Amino acid sequence: MNFKPFVSSLLAGLLLAATAARADDIPVAVAANFTAPFNKIAAEFEKETGHKVMSSFGSTGKFYAQIKNGAPFEILLAADDETPAKVIKEGAGVAGSPFSYAIGKLVLWSAKPAVVDAKGEVLQRGGFDHIALTNPKLAPYGAAAVETMKKLGVHDSLSPKFVTAETITQTHQFVSSGNSLLGFVALSQVLKDGKIEGSAWVVPANLYTPIRQDAVLLTPGKDKAGAVALLKYLQGAKAQAVIKSYGYELGQ
């Protein structure tokens, strides 16, 4: 009787069992603009490692407040680089762990074609009742939108038309539903297969402070193999290809 197939099968089963036993559940707080790419990255990471990613999506400002109040996240993927630095300074993050996983791009977008022109002159021209943006106190994309409008000299004239959302996901919903004709969102939210549906102006980078999005290992994840592995995976070629496909630039 040939025992080799049986032994190979047994060893494979034992290896799978050992991997499953070591698998971690990884609670991750993810900036809302990064929802689509992170879902893809997390699914592939889970297949390759056996770890399970437990994702929460929202505004960086709200996650910061939750982390300060003891929320057991192991990783924060922020929409800025200031919040990770702050959590480290306050003892809630691991020194030396932050890195820029993406650099975001701001877009003025309408779900309808021919509303937003290629130079963003619609902001000067008007002809709309509402413009959506994310709360600049909670979200860097909202702060970037305000900075852009101020540099263009249209902030004060447009402010009565602002529809302010708590997250950039909600901002996108305001515009996609037609409740607001146009709004400032992340390029990653409207880029599908390399094209933007509706009409859009990709805001020139010199009109706002670069949206450098940093990842940080939080204190609860310090000794967790799964959390460390996920951060390493984010810096790998597969994850970076996904990030670039959603219109982000890669961090340095």
Rank of each mutant, 00 (worst) to 15 (best):
A227Q: 01
A239S: 15
A102L: 01
I168W: 06
I243P: 12
K119C: 04
P160Q: 11
K86E: 14
P72T: 04
N2V: 07
V163G: 06
I168E: 12
P160S: 11
V216Y: 00
A200E: 04
K161V: 03
S97W: 00
V87E: 11
K238T: 08
V87P: 10
K150S: 10
A239H: 10
L77C: 06
L15H: 05
A18W: 15
A17M: 11
S180I: 02
A17D: 06
D24R: 06
R125M: 12
L133H: 12
F162H: 02
D80N: 15
A118I: 04
F57A: 09
Q124L: 14
S180H: 06
H155I: 03
G13C: 03
A92E: 13
G93P: 07
A165Q: 04
E197G: 11
K86N: 11
V190T: 05
V116C: 03
N2K: 13
F57V: 11
Q189H: 03
V122P: 10
F63P: 02
I103N: 10
T164F: 02
A114E: 14
G247K: 09
Y208R: 06
P37W: 01
L16I: 04
S56G: 01
S180Q: 09
P113W: 06
N2H: 11
N39E: 15
S188A: 15
V242Y: 01
A102W: 00
S159R: 13
H172W: 14
P27F: 06
I67N: 05
E46P: 03
A118P: 05
G153S: 09
P27H: 01
G183Q: 07
G226C: 05
F184Y: 13
R212N: 13
L152C: 05
L123K: 08
S8H: 12
D24I: 02
Q173I: 13
L217C: 08
P98W: 01
N33R: 02
Q173L: 13
K195P: 01
L10Y: 09
K151M: 10
S100R: 10
V175C: 12
F57W: 04
V30P: 06
G221E: 00
V30S: 07
N2I: 08
L218S: 06
V53Y: 00
E249V: 08
T83D: 08
A71Y: 08
F63Y: 12
T169R: 10
T19N: 14
V203C: 07
F38T: 09
G178L: 10
A186L: 02
T169G: 13
T167Y: 04
A205P: 00
H155T: 04
Q170C: 08
K151C: 01
W109S: 00
A139T: 05
K192L: 11
L187W: 03
K4V: 13
G91L: 04
A118Y: 07
V228R: 15
L16W: 07
G58I: 02
A42T: 07
